[in-house]
């Protein structure tokens, strides 16, 4: 699903440049539940941005769903994001003036789905995350956990290949964190590839595979929890 070979990324900082990713190799197969662990500055967010087509890599190769990603213009990137990727952000990133249902329906709007169809589908996914009764509420009227559930419904509504979650529990207390992780586990069980970025050991431990990143290189890549899943 996601194949990365010798990936490099650096950011220009004045005259110098900051080398963030120093040759990563990573292969994530369809249906995996992977977490990237690392402290801040380890390069994990940069990796997610590249995987999520929100940023471009400098060197190396990146295949998404078998398609080589290189020299994408904004329009192609937008279409690929819409088709293959669902995002869950730490700060939820819901549009403040749209209610839960409209937020969930937005990716379908950019896909060109009819209004009736996309509101119907959006409602199904809101139901799936247990927020059917909150469909008409604005994000400001929802709790943090509810917002993240809405964001997850939004990530799923376009039936992507991969859900990318950037510190999905970073802004939540431990109880709501657990419920959000349970939701991610559930969608993974249904066959979705889930890619989580976190710096919390407890979160990473709930996934099937932990990739540890330090200073732009992978220091370990281990499968865990096989027994739990079984």
């Amino acid at each position: 699903m996601i194949e990365i070979k010798n990936l490099h990324k650096s950011y220009p900082m004045g005259k110098d440049s900051l080398h963030v990713l120093k040759g990563l190799d990573l292969h994530i197969k369809e249906g995996e539940f992977v977490s990237i662990m690392g402290s801040s500055g380890s390069g994990k967010s940069t990796l997610l941005n590249i995987v999520g087509l929100l940023d471009e890599h400098d060197e190396g190769e990146y295949f998404l769903n078998g398609q080589k990603i290189e020299k994408l213009d904004e329009k192609k990137a937008a279409v690929l994001r819409n088709k293959f990727l669902g995002f869950v952000f730490q700060s939820f990133n819901l549009i403040s003036y749209k209610n839960a249902l409209e937020n969930v329906a937005l990716p379908l709007y950019y896909r060109g789905t009819s209004r009736k169809e996309r509101l119907k589908t959006a409602m199904e996914y809101l139901d799936k995350v247990g927020l059917k009764d909150w469909a008409k509420h604005l994000p400001s009227e929802l709790s943090g956990g509810q917002k993240q559930r809405v964001a997850i419904a939004r990530a799923l509504v376009s039936r992507p290949k991969v859900v990318l979650a950037d510190e999905p529990t970073g802004a939540l207390d431990s109880t709501t964190s657990d419920s959000v992780m349970d939701l991610l586990k559930e969608i993974n069980r249904e066959g979705m590839t889930v890619f989580v970025i976190t710096h919390e050991e407890e979160i990473a431990e709930q996934t099937d595979r932990i990739v540890r990143l330090k200073d732009g290189v992978i220091i370990s890549d281990e499968k865990v929890n096989k027994n739990v899943k079984a």
């Binding site: 929100l54 904004e74 329009k75 279409v79 994001r81 819901l94 937005l106 990716p107 950019y110």
Partner: peptide, 15 residues
Amino acid sequence: KELGIRKALGATPKS
């Protein structure tokens, strides 16, 4: 920020 969210969800520059 709103525009950024829209782009992440698949909005093209033209839209």
